[in-house]
């Protein structure tokens, strides 16, 4: 004890105390914090109760304690559980930082936790609910292609590879997006994407679009007959490739044609 008090004015003492305090707090938190889905109950009210706790920790700093929204985040009253399942299920929420666009990233909640959050947000006000698996079953690819070109291709590009919007926003690539998330995105219109409610784009229409997107982005079903797709982004990447590689090759050949022929004797 005497040894300890003798060192209390050591320059590093404050640092040690701070680290100790942090470790203790963290440890206690890990021990007593709501243990995720450990006691997840299927009953609706318990799910909402769990979701409210998760919401208070992960979402309330921007969307306010009861989801009414702040200047950093919009109100979640009436967005429905489908919206939560899409935003949290693709890792877009919780957002890393505010900005023109919140990108998809690593998903940090389990599906059970997402369901709890969704149940809580759905309890704030009626909205589109998470679709069942038969709702987002794949439909007719050809019809889906027509619908995709009418409704989606203007932003997401003819091949579903996305594209630029105004002021730093962009439409993301649709490659690898699950059928459920595609359906939820069309239904709810996340971020700046407009929504396509069932009243104007029926469930059958959505299934056709899902079938088309999954077909066209799958190299096994829709192989690239021209080889290198260059991102299927159109004239920008193709032009860049042409300028660098095709013109580069032509310049190389021109240099070879005009190069000095080797002489028999060094001059």
């Amino acid at each position: 004890m005497k040894k300890l008090s003798a060192r209390r004015r050591h320059p590093l003492a404050a640092l040690v105390v701070l680290l100790f305090a942090l470790a203790t707090t963290g440890g206690l938190y890990a021990a007593f914090a709501p243990a995720g889905n450990a006691q997840a109950d299927s009953s609706q009210s318990l799910q909402i109760e769990q979701g409210k706790k998760l919401f208070a920790v992960g979402c309330s700093s921007c969307h306010a304690l009861s989801g009414e929204g702040t200047k950093d985040g919009p109100t979640l009253v009436g967005v429905g559980s489908a919206s939560v399942d899409f935003q949290v299920g693709t890792g877009r929420m919780p957002a890393q930082q505010p900005g023109a666009q919140i990108p998809a990233k690593k998903v940090i909640y389990t599906q059970d936790e997402i369901n709890e959050l969704a149940a809580y947000v759905a309890s704030l006000g009626a909205g589109p609910s998470i679709p069942t698996s038969d709702q987002y079953a794949a439909g007719d690819v050809a019809k889906g292609g027509e619908l995709f070109r009418t409704n989606c291709a203007q932003c997401h590009n003819f091949a579903g590879s996305g594209g630029a919007l105004s002021e730093g926003k962009y439409a993301p690539s649709l490659d690898g997006v699950s059928a459920k998330h595609l359906y939820e995105a069309m239904l709810t219109g996340p971020q700046n994407m407009p929504s396509f409610p069932n009243s104007t784009l029926s469930t059958q229409n959505k299934q056709d679009i899902i079938a088309y997107v999954q077909h066209t982005t799958d190299p096994a079903k829709n192989p690239s007959f021209g080889g290198l797709t260059l991102g299927a982004l159109g004239p920008v990447t193709e032009g860049l490739f042409g300028w660098i590689f095709a013109l580069g090759a032509l310049i190389g050949i021109a240099i070879w044609i005009a190069a000095r022929t080797p002489k028999a004797k060094k001059s």
């Binding site: 409704n151 396509f196 104007t200």
Partner: peptide
């Protein structure tokens, strides 16, 4: 998409 006439209630806020 549907080739049907629309009511105002079919067009929700934020839709296209």
């Amino acid at each position: 998409n549907t080739n049907e006439p629309m009511k105002a209630s079919d067009i929700t806020v934020g839709s296209l």
